[in-house]
Design a binder for these strands. Structure first.
Length: 219
DNA sequence: GTAGGGTTAGCG
DNA sequence: CGCTAACCCTAC
C-alpha cells in the first residue's frame, strides 16, 4: 500500500497566537498516521509505505517511510512543548484538504487481523483529535526492535531502551514494558495463546531465549 | 522509573 | 460473552 503524503512547512515565525494552531496541525498529522496504521492492520500485516514528498522546508526527510519513521524513531514525535524546538525540526506539517480524499480509505475493508483500537474520533470526521494514545497496535518491525533492545539492555531497563531504540517513537517506556510482558505471555514455552501478529519464527525463538534467561535471573 | 494488577476496545 | 492486546493505575 503506497500513500503519498504532501506536506509543507506551516509557519516559520513563532507567534504566540499561532501556537495552538500549530499544535493542532501537529496532532492532526499524527492522528492521520494513526489512521494509516489502523488501516494497515485491517488490510494486512506488512507496513504501509508512506512517502512524504516534502517535509520541512529545510528538507530533513526525503521520501521517507513515514509510518516506520513515526513508530520506530526517525520522525520527530509531537513535541509536548512547542517552545522546545525552534530549529525547524518540530513535527509540524500542513495537511492538504485532498488528503481527506484518499481513496484507499473509501475502498472495501479487507479481512484480516483486527484493526487497532479506536477510542477517539477519527480525524476524518473531525480534523483534529487530541492524541495518538490508545490507538496503535505493534508492528512486527517494532517487536523486532524491542527484542533487539531487550537483548542489549536486559529486561527492566525500559527508559534506557526507549531512549536508544524508540527515541522518537510514540511508544513510552511503560508501553515497552507492557509489550514485553505480552510477548512473554504469548510466546513463552507452554503458552497456547493464539497470536494476532505473526512474527518470524527466528524472532519468536529470540523471545523464548530471552524469556528463559529472564526466568533464570528471577529465581 | 518499574512491576504488576486492573481496565477495556475490538473481535470471534 | 470471552479472550487478547494495549493501555491505565499506583505502590514502591
Amino acid at each position: 500500500m503506497l500513500v503519498a503524503l504532501r506536506s509543507s512547512r506551516l509557519l516559520t515565525s513563532h507567534h504566540n497566537a499561532d501556537r495552538a494552531f500549530r499544535m493542532e496541525q501537529q496532532q492532526a498529522i499524527y492522528g492521520f498516521l494513526g489512521e494509516l496504521q489502523m488501516e494497515n492492520y485491517r488490510a494486512r500485516e506488512e507496513d504501509v509505505d508512506v512517502w512524504i514528498l516534502r517535509l520541512l522546508e529545510e528538507g530533513s526527510v526525503d521520501a521517507a517511510n513515514l509510518n516506520d519513521c513515526c513508530l520506530s524513531g526517525d520522525l520527530p514525535a509531537p513535541s509536548p512543548s512547542p517552545d522546545a524546538n525552534d530549529n525547524g525540526h518540530v513535527g509540524i506539517y500542513r495537511i492538504d484538504a485532498e488528503l481527506l480524499n484518499f481513496n484507499y480509505l473509501t475502498g472495501p475493508r479487507k479481512s484480516g487481523p483486527r484493526g487497532t483500537r479506536k477510542r477517539r474520533t477519527s480525524p476524518w470526521n473531525s480534523m483534529f483529535y487530541t492524541s495518538r494514545k490508545n490507538n496503535s497496535r505493534w508492528t512486527a518491525k517494532e517487536v523486532e526492535r524491542l527484542v533487539q533492545g531487550v537483548s542489549k539492555f536486559g529486561v527492566g531497563r525500559w527508559t534506557n531502551l526507549k531512549q536508544n531504540f524508540f527515541k522518537r517513537s510514540i511508544r513510552t517506556a511503560v508501553n515497552l514494558k507492557d509489550k514485553w510482558r505480552n510477548l512473554l505471555k504469548t510466546y513463552q514455552e507452554g503458552s497456547q495463546k493464539t497470536t494476532q501478529l505473526h512474527l518470524e519464527p527466528s524472532l519468536v525463538e529470540r523471545i523464548r531465549k530471552l524469556a528463559e534467561k529472564q526466568q533464570m535471573q528471577h529465581i
